[in-house]
Structure formats: C-alpha cells, structure tokens
Write a protein that binds this DNA or RNA. Structure first.
Lengths: 225, 225
DNA sequence: AGGATAATGACAGCGACTGACAATTGACAA
DNA sequence: TTGTCAATTGTCAGTCGCTGTCATTATCCT
C-alpha cells in the first residue's frame, strides 16, 4: 500500500509532458478520476465497483490498479493534490512569519489557485460533491484522515525548520500543527456538510474557526465571542 | 459497516452476565480479541488472515464476522473500549470546571482505571504492542482516526451541554475539542512509537503535550519553554 | 421433557486486489 | 521506413475480506 502517489511529481522530477506516451497516461488517469467521481457522486462509493469505473473509461480492471493502488486512492486524488499544493505554498513562505501565522495566512491565500488547479482535472462542482461523499463514507473519511496525518508530519518538519527548533526534543511544532490541522479538518467537515458549499465559503468557514482557537481555549465561555 | 460495536452496553442496556449463553459469548469474543492481537503483534496485521484468527479460537470464519463487523474492528476493540471509558468519565465530571480543564483533568485521572479495564480483556503488554501495530499499519491507523472523530463529535455535544452553548451556532465547542483531540492523538502517537511505552509514560507524555498548547500557539518560540 | 429461540457451521458467491505472462504500442536508432 | 527495445496493457487465475442463506446445534423457558 503506497503512501504516496506513483506517477506524480516526485521532488526534483518534473511532470514532463513530453512524448505521446506520457500525455496518454495523464489523459487516462484523469479520465479515470472523473469517471470514478461521477459514479461515486451519483450512486455512492461502496456501491460502485472498480469494474464499472474501468468500463466507463474502457480499460481493463487491471489497468485501473496500475494507476491507483486501491479504490480509495482515486476518490482522494484531488484532495491529495490540494494538500500537496498547500504544503508547497507553506514552504514558499517568507521566513519572518510566526508559525501559526504562516499556516493560517497560507491557507487564506491559496484558495483561488486551488480552484484553478482543481479545474485542470475535474469540474469544481463535481469536486465539491465529491467532498461530501468523502465525509459521508466511512472508508473514505478514514483514508482522508490518514492522509492528513502524513501532511501533518511534513508540516511539523517545516515548522521546526523555519523556527530552528528540534522537533524531536521540543513538542511545540507537533502541538501547534496538531491543533491547527485538527481545527482545519473540523472546519472543512462542517463546511462540506452545508448544501451551499463553495470554495469562497470554505475560505470563510476555515478563517472563522481558526479565529476561535484562542477564545475556545479560554476558561470562560460565558461571554459571546 | 456498523459504527458501534454490537453486543456491547448500549445506553440503558446493562451488560447482563446472566445466563450461560451470555457468558459463553463474552468468552468467545475475548478469546477472539486476544488471539487476533497475538497474531497481529507477531506476524503483522495485513499478513494475518481472518481464517487464522478463527482457527486459533476454533470457530468458523463466519462466526468471527458475527462478533466483529470486519478485521479492523477486532484490532481496535480495546482502544475503542478505552475511548468509551474516557467519554463516560468526561460526562461524570462536576459542572464547575471550564471546558479545557474538564477534558484535561479527566485524562489525567483515568489512567489507572483504564489499565484495570484493559486487563480484564487482554494482558497490558499485549495491548501496548498492539498500539504500536495500529500506528504502523495504514489501514488500522486510518480506522483509529475515524473512530476518534466519532468520539470527537460526542465530546462536542457534551461540552456544548455543559456550557450551555449551541454547537450549531457557536464554533467554540468544536474548535476546542478539535484542538484537544488533535494534540492528544499526536501525543499518543509519539508515545506509542517509543520502545519504553507504558501507561505511566502515556500519562506523562499527554500531559506534557497538552501543557504546550498555550505556548505553541504563541508567536514567539525563541525562548525555550 | 419439549417447543421456541438464539448461536453456529457449511457453503456459495461477490468485489477488491495481485502475480504472471502474453500481446500491443510508442520510442528511438539504423 | 523499419526493426528493436522497453513500457503499457489485457487476460487469466487465484487469494482474501465479507455477506446471504439454510440446515444444525445449543441454550432457554415453561
């Protein structure tokens, strides 16, 4: 069970589109993603078989499994792309920012670019509906949380690097990132369960939730925040 | 895919040990748990088949699936028991405490009782090794995170109830619980990866991590905390 | 003791996934 | 252009997780 996606920009390896072969592979993979998402959204994840997905793109089931290690992977493909996107945006931040600011500001900044990146693979509407399917489907939700944990570890390393602390001695990088991603996940979960979900809405909800991090830890909730 | 365990104390339904039938079922179930955990610990989760577990307890594979909805469930059985244990301890707390204090103090208080509760089913050593297997095995880690999310939602409701706020309007209960469980999960993860893991150690690591919640959110990490 | 009820075993079947091998297709040099 | 090599794909067989069904066995209750 690969934890990273094969076929995708390894660090240092450009996504070379040269050659008919490469282009054909990209097209097949994207077609599989879109076809799978459409099936998942219309008839549900569990009730969709891999054979159906393969048939929709007219490849063999075996070929499907050469592109995606398992059925979950094709379902989480776009979300994972967004996560990689976020991580790289964090790494590209100026050095001056405080850790929490860095994580939060990055999130606030990338939404438009995320939308563009998603559109290159699948219609945004489909992606939004797919987000709901992920939240609704236990197996997908579980896989999503595990993927988030992988991102978390990478963010921990980056925060430690930025601040010059040792993540193995000082718990603060882990604590910060854990709290941050915990709140972010909850926000995205609450967001996707709304029926008026949109990218703009995601930005707002996430911002609101993160703004409550300080007040929520406070002892006294009697005053309205 | 059941999200709760069948056969187990539903609210209001006592775990009646009356009757030979009930006792026999409990024994079979516990035997399955112990046999499964021993196999998982010695030869790994993925490489252990359900047939092997069933054979070790001398029941049919079909019977195994009458006790556990899937292979994951038997692996997470004890951890889930601990989570239920924690939740009920939270609900039994005095009303005066502030939300974060309540969650933290409960955690600090229950470790001994948790140990006793675990011992009733499986040797603690086995459970500790099983915790490591869970962290190491992608499928189990994913399932564990999803189960934690279920607990999270229950804790949100309880925190909202205690403080008299509406969890659908006020984001603070969700934000607090998300940050708290995020940090707690990270702590338990770091703990279980140590090779000197013990229950006492778990208490310490978790306490340390939670104590860093405030400082970690702080802008300035230049001073050693 | 005996009938109702619950637990189990045996079996057949589906879907996810994998290894192996043969067939096809694009890349590249002669 | 053509022939060779390597990458991609399809086919097939097989394992494992999991489920429905039905006959069999074991407990419960009067």
């Amino acid at each position: 069970m690969a934890l990273t996606y094969r076929e995708y920009p390894e660090p240092g390896e450009e996504a070379t589109l040269t050659g008919l072969r490469e282009r054909k592979k990209q097209r097949t993979r994207d077609a599989l993603v879109v076809a799978a998402h459409e099936l998942f959204v219309t008839q549900g994840y569990e009730t969709t078989t891999v054979d159906q997905i393969a048939e929709a793109v007219d490849v063999s089931q075996r070929t499907f499994f050469r592109y995606f290690a398992n059925k979950e992977e094709v379902a989480l493909f776009v979300q994972d792309m967004v996560e990689r996107f976020y991580y790289e945006a964090v790494c590209a931040r100026p050095a001056g920012e405080a850790p929490l600011e860095c994580l939060r500001n990055t999130l606030d900044d990338i939404w438009d670019d995320v939308g563009a990146a998603v559109e290159e693979i699948t219609p945004i509407d489909l992606h939004l509906k797919m987000c709901q399917v992920i939240e609704m489907t236990p197996a997908l939700l579980a896989a999503r949380l595990r993927h988030s944990l992988l991102l978390e570890e990478k963010l921990v390393q980056e925060m430690a690097r930025r601040t010059g602390v040792d993540a193995d001695k000082d718990p603060r990088p882990r604590v910060l990132v854990a709290a941050f991603t915990g709140v972010t996940l909850t926000a995205s979960r609450q967001w996707s369960m709304r029926n008026d979900a949109s990218l703009a809405m995601a930005r707002e909800v996430t911002r609101d939730y993160l703004a409550q991090l300080g007040p929520a830890l406070c002892a006294d909730w009697t005053r309205q925040s």
